[in-house]
Nucleic acid binder design. Structure first.
Length: 276
DNA sequence: TATTCATTTCCTGCTT
DNA sequence: GAAGCAGGAAATGAAT
């Protein structure tokens, strides 16, 4: 292992990450295909010009910011590019995503016409004037300011736990108990597995029914995770350490004798085919 | 301000 | 010898 500063722990690690150019795009250029994992980020581009993967990133962002389980949004229903997405009606969003449909629709319309997804995100869903054409430029540089990210406040249809308690039995869509930092690593891994068309040979199921999967490009996954966390120094070695901590929490189970193979445990949710 | 949580980083030893 | 795994220890940063 090569240590920063000649083997001494660098006290400033991560301090300059936002200025650093992600180096991983070089090493995995084979994956840098249109609509793949390595294009520009969704918030840098107008929704009309999103690739399928950017649509997926946007969905993931909504899960993160609204503290929703991945089961709230069936990603397979959104196997479309930005142009197709922008053409979907509120009814189509509701049909595809159920209770989360209006949230998705409102967020998208907000992005399309105001270029923001801040705290007034959801109210826009009720007063959206659907335009039939637009000529916004593909790249909206103001969106590069990510200060709006991780804003979880909106007044949508997904009720607070307090409201839920007095109403329906446990619904599919509910806020997470604790997930202040957005997607957990295991959820990130799971979502790659659940979206094989967005997963250019990074991870594959070994036994779908048992939740056994294998890393095909371990370092590429680590770099992708690092990109999500704004940490360009992420490696598979570090990622795998985080994975091993999941053993204690029964989120993952050990698979003895097989390299790069993991198995979802009883506390991992949303990976089973019949769960969505 | 202290605590908790979910990593992240570094390390040693072991296995493949 | 390289790569990966296991797990201890400490650090980090955001949320509570």
């Amino acid at each position: 292992m090569i240590l920063e500063g000649g083997g001494v722990m660098n006290p400033n690690h991560g301090s300059n990450l936002l200025q650093q150019q992600p180096a991983w795009t070089d090493g995995y250029a084979a994956c840098n295909v249109p609509g793949g994992f390595f294009g520009s980020q969704w918030h840098e581009t107008h929704p009309q010009y999103w690739s399928k993967y950017q649509v997926w990133e946007w969905l993931q962002h909504l899960l993160d910011t609204n503290q929703l389980d991945a089961s709230c949004i069936p990603f397979q229903e959104f196997d479309v590019d930005g142009e197709h997405l922008c053409g979907m009606s509120l009814q189509e969003f509701s049909r595809a995503a159920g209770a989360a449909g209006p949230l998705l629709y409102g967020s998208l319309q907000n992005l399309r016409w105001s270029g923001q997804c801040g705290s007034d995100l959801f109210p826009a869903t009720h007063n959206v004037i659907v335009k039939t054409e637009q000529t916004d430029p593909p790249v909206m540089n103001t969106w590069k300011d990510e200060s709006y990210l991780y804003d979880s406040s909106y007044g949508g249809t997904v009720e607070s736990p307090e409201v839920k308690k007095e109403q329906d039995p446990p619904a599919k869509c509910h806020p997470k108990k604790h997930n202040p930092r957005g997607t957990h690593l295991w959820e990130f891994i799971r979502d790659i597995l659940l979206n094989p068309d967005k997963n250019p040979g990074l991870i594959k199921w070994e036994d779908r029914a048992e939740g056994v999967f294998r890393f095909l490009k371990s370092e590429a996954v680590a770099q992708l995770w690092g990109r999500k966390k704004n940490n360009s120094s992420m490696t598979y070695e570090k990622l795998s350490r985080a994975m091993r901590y999941y053993y204690k929490r029964d989120i993952l189970e050990r698979v003895d004798g097989r390299r790069l193979v993991y198995k979802f445990g009883k506390n991992a949710r949303g990976w089973r085919e019949d769960e969505n």
